[in-house]
Every structure is written in C-alpha cells, then in structure tokens.
C-alpha cells in the first residue's frame, strides 16, 4: 500500500502532464474554434451564393448586405452584453423603431418650415433618438435590477410599449418630414464601398469588442452571467452593473435608430420589427450562451454576417423572400444544436 502510493505519482505525472497539456490546448482553442467553424459557415454561404448568382459578389449587393447588417449588428452588440450577463433583451428592435420615430418627430415638429435650422434640427433629433433608446434601456435595467421582474418579462413588456408608442407618434405612419441632409449622410459612401452607417457600426463594434474582452466592464458582465453568487460574494455591485448593461443595449438601439432613420430618410416605427429576433439569433449563432457567462463580439459579428448573407443571398438566387426567416430560424437551431453536442462531449471528457 505504502509502496504503491509512493510509486504512483511518479508514474502518473508525465502521463497526466501530457494529456492535460493537450486538454489545455484544446480548451484554449475552444472559443477560437467555435468562431472558426461559424466563420466557415459564413464563408461557405458566401461561396455558395457567389456560384448561385452572378450578382452576389457585386458592389451593389455588398452595399445592400452591409446596410442590412449594420442595424442588426448594432443591436447584436448590445444584445451580446445582455446575453453574456445571463439576461435577454427582447425590446431592442422595438426600441430602435421607437427612438428613430421619436427623433424624426422632434425634427418634423420642433423645427418645421424654418429655413437654415437643419444642423440644429439634426443635432437635436439625433440626441432625442439616443435619449429615447437610453431611456428604454434604463427602464429595462431598472425593472430587472430593482423591481426583480425577470428580463424576459420586462423586455417583452417594453417591446410592446416601445412598439405601441412608436405607432402613436404619427398614427402608425412613418415621419418623413425631416431635413433631407439626414438621408444624404445615411446613404453616403466612403470611397464608394463603405456606407457611412457601416463605418459608424464598425467603429462601435470594435470598441465594444475590446470592452467585452479587455476591460473590467466586460469581465463583470461575463462573471455575473456565469455566477451571480460569485460576483456578489466578491463584493461587486451586481445590480448597478446589470443596470448599465441594459442601458448600453438601449443606447445602442438608439444609435441603430439614427442609422436606420438616416438610411430611410424617415422615422419608421416598424423599422426594427424583424431585428429583435435577428439580433438575438446573431448573438446565439455567434456562440454566446443563453445561460450567460460566455460570448464574444466577433462571434456576434459572424452571426450577423450569416443572417445578412442569407437574407440578401436567398433573394438573389430567386428564393421567395419568405424563406429568409425560415432559413435564419433553421440556422439558429442548428448552431445551438452543434454547440450543445460540443459542450456535451467536453463535459463527458
């Protein structure tokens, strides 16, 4: 007994070291691999659609696809933080629509007819749009952290509230009496290839990718989603942090509201109605866990890319547009299924 106890560590250590080194390597690759295989799906879709349609790899389709992607991506960035924190924000698309409509309403009614006020009208209108988004984010955050209503219920409620208020602003009609230069900015291209909304979205996305992965804010977000108990015991103010996460999500929905308004040249209450689920799907396809604690912005970017490419690509290969949502839904389920398989294998090992 004594002998075997003394002998066994010496025999086991090299073995264990070798296997654990491999396991460690695999673990470190895990997140990267997840992004990679999802990235592979995106590339496969691009290749497939390029073969299927001569119009897919064109400047016109790039401008169209990237514009489609911007609003979903902005919402997905905020949604990534919310989902990583263990919550969900169902209201982002509705908040996008409401905030853009509110901004347009202020531009149309506060500055109607007065010549030369366009810069002021635009500034105030954009500010109102951001404030409207932030206000809904703050409302969500307040209800989740102070009233202890589950995030799903809170944001389902604000989804309805924001949708209804958006329609109430102009009897359900879009508001197009805004300065023409808004649409000029929104449809301008940098070098002919980079629409202004795409550039804005790219800058914001890179910034928040760094925030999530490199800063204390991101670390708290992931840790809260992983184990609320651990975070509370570590003396972190979990409720204050979660409030900020929902505020961020609402604020980015406001930014998306500005970009959509600028693209359409009008404030449209219905403009974000399909973006809710697309944003959540993009985040989940990108590898974030709906139970919290895991997720990356780069994953959400790829997830958004898959959705945007499906939406524009299917049209180009003459598939009826209603199939878009079918395809996005199927990809969502498939991505989570594959992720579950991998997780199960990992836990068994």
């Amino acid at each position: 007994m004594t002998l075997s106890r003394q002998a066994s560590p010496a025999q086991q250590v090299p073995d264990r070291k070798a296997t654990s080194a491999i396991a460690r390597y695999l673990d470190r690759c895990h997140a990267a691999v997840r992004s990679l295989w999802i990235g592979g799906v995106l590339i496969a879709l691009i290749v497939g659609f390029s073969i299927g349609s001569p119009y897919f790899l064109t400047r016109a389709n790039w401008l169209n696809t990237s514009s489609t992607a911007t609003e979903v991506l902005l919402l997905a960035v905020g949604e990534t933080f919310v989902i990583c924190s263990g919550g969900i924000d169902l209201s982002v698309g509705a908040v996008l629509g409401f905030s853009g409509t509110a901004g347009a309403w202020v531009m149309a009614h506060g500055f109607a007819g007065a010549a030369g006020t366009a810069p002021l009208a635009i500034s105030v209108g954009f500010l109102v749009t951001l404030l409207a988004g932030g206000a809904f984010g703050a409302l969500n955050g307040f209800l989740v952290t102070r009233a202890f209503v589950p995030p799903f219920v809170v944001t389902l409620g604000t989804l309805g509230i924001a949708t209804g208020l958006g329609y109430l602003l102009n009897n359900g009609q879009e508001i197009s009496a805004i300065p023409a230069s808004v649409a000029t900015i929104g449809n301008a291209n940098l070098g002919g290839w980079i629409p202004v909304p795409v550039a804005v979205t790219a800058a914001i996305t890179i910034w928040y990718a760094l925030v999530l992965s490199k800063t204390r804010f991101g670390a708290y977000t992931l840790s809260i989603g992983d184990s609320r108990e651990a975070v509370v015991r570590a003396g972190i103010n979990d409720r204050r942090h979660l409030f900020k996460v929902y505020l961020l999500s609402g604020f980015l929905a406001g930014v998306a509201g500005i970009l959509v308004m600028a693209r359409l040249g009008a404030g449209s209450p219905a403009s974000g109605s399909t973006d809710n689920l697309n944003a959540i799907a993009a985040v989940v396809i990108g590898g974030a866990s709906l139970f919290g604690g895991r997720g990356t912005i780069i994953g959400s970017v790829i997830g958004t890319g898959i959705i945007a490419v499906l939406i524009t690509g299917l049209v180009l290969i003459n598939v009826p547009p209603f199939w878009q949502e079918v395809a996005v839904g199927a990809v969502l389920i498939l991505a989570v299924y594959i992720d579950q398989l991998r997780g199960r294998r990992r836990h068994r090992a």
């Binding site: 204390r216 670390a219 992931l222 840790s223 992983d226 184990s227 108990e229 651990a230 975070v231 015991r233 570590a234 003396g235 972190i236 866990s289 604690g293 895991r294």
Partner: peptide, 24 residues
C-alpha cells in the same frame, strides 16, 4: 470560503482569483 466556493465556472483561474479586485 463557503461550500459552494463561489467560483464562476466558465471564467478562467485568473478572473476568479481577481474577481472584484481586478488590476487596471
């Protein structure tokens, strides 16, 4: 140290070690 340890499972050892005391 409670029985449940209060560790965040998906976070790495460093993140758990410094949780709430991160070095900026």
């Amino acid at each position: 140290v409670y029985q449940d340890l209060a560790l965040a499972g998906q976070r790495d050892v460093v993140a758990n070690f410094f949780m709430g005391r991160e070095v900026i």
